[in-house]
């Protein structure tokens, strides 16, 4: 089990290195290698999660180690989906480092298997977890495309049209995929919050208790709502939207890690 996790981490690391090389040199071999190691890493990663699931007897989201690992896993799967659908050149070079860092943080967090209170173990666990993680992962990949947009936009604005300019996708594609991901992530987050509330009502008898996790989720929710709102009403797209998507992901990360580590929360994976 541990070995699968460790190997996945290594694959993500190699994939990251190849991704960075691709950014710098732009050879096809590194790009292919990056994909191969990403797929290999993902397979091993899936295996490690399944094994942890069997060992613990419940969905492995009972502590921050497990949650960060699942987060990384979700980011990779969303990346694969976007890659298959849109073929955004160089996206992997921005997403795989993200997956690697999430995985690395997971690897240094305490790994013991925590028992999960039986009252929490029902289908709401599945619904809430899947919604929240895929939503967060969509925001992560959106952040990646946002960063790519900002780099490419800088090249065009500053008239520095070197090799990377030629290899990065067009501003339009980056902006479209960025927004697409936000419009995927946002309903998922919405449903995650609602399902969390319903679940909480079932377990603790109240829908909403202004727990820090709840508060920060709501702040994140408002932020992404604002991005969508400004785009529709005030034409905030392109650079502004890209910056907002990066900022939004910072909020996601704080809700995910910051609240768990810094604030006292009732939420699992503290």
């Amino acid at each position: 089990m541990v070995i699968a996790f460790e190997l996945a981490l290594t694959c993500y690391f190699i994939s990251t290195i190849l991704g960075v090389l691709e950014l710098v040199k732009g050879s096809k071999a590194t790009s292919r290698g990056m994909t191969v190691f990403a797929i290999l890493g993902f397979t091993l990663h899936t295996l490690s999660i399944v094994m942890r699931f069997i060992q613990g007897g419940h969905m492995p989201v009972a502590n921050l180690h497990e949650a960060a690992s699942l987060f990384a896993w979700s980011v990779v799967i969303i990346f694969f989906i976007i890659e298959i659908k849109y073929r955004v050149g160089l996206l992997g070079a921005f997403i795989m480092p993200m997956a690697f860092i999430l995985m690395l943080s997971s690897s240094i967090l305490p790994r013991e298997i925590n028992p999960l209170s039986p009252v929490l173990q029902n289908y709401w666990l599945w619904i809430h977890t899947l919604l929240a993680f895929t939503g967060d992962a969509a925001f992560a990949v959106a952040c990646g495309t946002g960063v790519m947009y900002l780099i490419q936009e800088h090249f065009v604005k500053a008239k520095k049209l070197g090799g990377l300019f030629h290899r990065l996708p067009s501003l339009r594609v980056l902006d479209e995929v960025n927004y697409r991901l936000i419009t995927i992530g946002f309903p998922l987050l919405t449903l995650a919050i609602i399902s969390g509330a319903v679940w909480a009502e079932g377990v603790w008898g109240t829908f909403w208790r202004w727990d820090p996790k709840e508060v920060w989720s709501l702040i994140t929710w408002f932020f992404y709502a604002l991005i969508i709102h400004l785009r529709i009403t005030a034409g905030w797209h392109g650079k502004r939207s890209a910056i907002m998507s990066v900022a939004g992901f910072v909020a996601v990360l704080f809700t995910f890690f910051g609240v768990s580590i810094l604030l006292k929360s009732m939420h699992e994976f503290k």
Partner: peptide, 9 residues
């Protein structure tokens, strides 16, 4: 080339 990098299609 620039137009394509800005607008795609």
């Amino acid at each position: 080339e620039l137009a394509k990098k800005i607008f795609g299609e």
